[in-house]
Amino acid sequence: MLYIKCPHCGLRSQNEFSYGGDATIKRPELNKEISDQDWDNFVYLRKSPRGKHLELWQHISGCRQWIKVERDTLTHEIFRTFKANEGI
């Protein structure tokens, strides 16, 4: 079970979190023209990298904040965690 450092609450076990996928995906802006291709990429297309991955987790059984976690998908090593409004 992973040990994730919530930037708001500290180190907590994985079972307090839910996974939210790739954190680098940016939702297209509202009311802006977007091609079918670009929209489909946003909705469906995700990379499945082997190695470092910046991903979203929500601390659902804690502070309920969405956080960003930089994790190695192969070794499960967690390098850094960020608040939602922080970048790398």
């Binding site: 839910s18 939702r27 659902i60 939602a84």
Partner: peptide, 17 residues
């Protein structure tokens, strides 16, 4: 109920802070 709350929080915290 639980999914909707997470959904709303997602947009408020990450997409339209």
């Amino acid at each position: 109920a639980a999914n909707v709350l997470s959904h709303l929080e997602y947009y408020l915290q990450l997409v339209w802070p």
